[in-house]
Design a protein around this nucleic acid. Structure first.
Lengths: 214, 214
DNA sequence: AAGATACGCAACGGTCGCGTTTCGGTGGTA
DNA sequence: TACCACCGAAACGCGACCGTTGCGTATCTT
């Protein structure tokens, strides 16, 4: 008797976004609960990592019964996949200053700040192992989280090419990965300090190279 | 009645290495068991990650009883800390070819291969979350695993400075982090392909910079 | 008002892994 | 030979979570 004519009694995730107007009889899903659950998931993902994230923990933090979660998502990974998709918030952006160097440095500064402080930024280390184990999660993470954050820097580099500031034959993706990778590597792997002018030094290295000019 | 005069009945980890010669009466610890346990730990660490690594799993894979493990290490994190210290195996090294570019490219090629294929190389993503949670583990990981692998590249860059190939004022650590970070970022985060001449392209970018020369 | 559905709460049986204990047997040293 | 610490196997109680169910209540649509 479901609108779509499917006879399975399972809710099958009727798409959380689709209960706005006249839907059917009965009490509608609480949008507030949706919000609280996703927020709790993101928080715990950042704080504890994927493997230590538990449905009971999410329920407790969201102030919601476990049943309320399972009514929406059949399992933990589906909940996480959906929650990652909700992270479109204010992204870091490379401004258009007219000079690559300034664009890059500004982007890096924002990025470091986000990685350290924002909840979304701290999700990274706790989710990496799962990516190789759960392709759907990996897809959601890369498409909904990684890509949008790279986009603005890719644009900045393209602008720089158009302006004739940087070589047109460079591998843009490679440069973006360098920029992001260094800071992530420091934060997650080596634990070395990131001082205030590291973005400047990196910009120098990337723009001018490390070769000794003759 | 323990030699050291400590009255605690707990074994207190009598240092695994210390059962070589005449030690005391009774059957000595099996060195083969030591080896098997550590090998199993490293394997499972690479395959499953820290959080999914279980003492029971290690025991099963090592062909050893759980008691045999607990007799040596009081808990999982101590076992892992010790096992990480046993990873000194053949490290990737930057050869001394006389040209930085060749040294760098060779180092990168080896590194990518190790990251993909070797057991030690695959440990990375599965241990990162724990580093922020367990300082002792972080210390063991960084000192016993990360540092030795950086060392050879740091040397290569110093040689290049001495030869006058690269600018003497560059931040060596930064360059190393760039080199390692990019590949790690691709493998763990973006999942983008790493083609055969990516090391070459990266070496170009780092040596010559991306600026358009006038 | 009637019916349908969501809600919180509490409890369930089940699985997993922890760290410990007991046991009979084994391989060394003195 | 006597002794002693080691070994593997098995079982233990414990706690954390899982995903599900039943219940009484709340809140919508018709």
């Amino acid at each position: 008797m479901t609108p779509a004519g499917v006879d399975t009694p399972v809710p099958e995730t009727p798409a959380v976004g689709g209960h706005g107007a006249g839907h059917g009889p009965g009490r509608p899903r609480s949008a507030e609960a949706d919000r609280a659950i996703v927020a709790a998931t993101v928080h715990l993902l950042a704080e504890e990592g994927y493997s230590r994230l538990s449905m009971e923990g999410v329920a407790a933090r969201a102030g919601v019964a476990k049943t309320t979660i399972y009514r929406r998502w059949p399992c933990k990974s589906d909940l996480v996949v959906h929650s990652l998709g909700c992270l479109t918030e204010k992204l870091e952006t490379a401004p258009d200053t007219g000079r690559v160097r300034d664009d890059l440095v500004a982007f890096m500064r924002q990025m470091v700040d986000k990685m350290r402080r924002s909840e979304a930024g701290r999700i990274m280390p706790g989710i990496l192992v799962e990516l190789s184990r759960n392709p759907e999660l990996a897809q959601a993470f890369r498409q909904g989280f990684v890509e949008p954050r790279r986009a603005s820097m890719v644009k900045a580099l393209r602008r720089a090419i158009d302006r004739g500031e940087i070589r047109p034959d460079i591998d843009v993706d490679l440069v973006v990965d360098v920029t992001v990778g260094v800071f992530q590597h420091r934060l997650m792997v080596t634990g070395m300090a990131i001082d205030d002018d590291m973005p400047d030094r990196l910009a120098d290295v990337m723009l001018e190279g490390i070769s000794l000019r003759r």
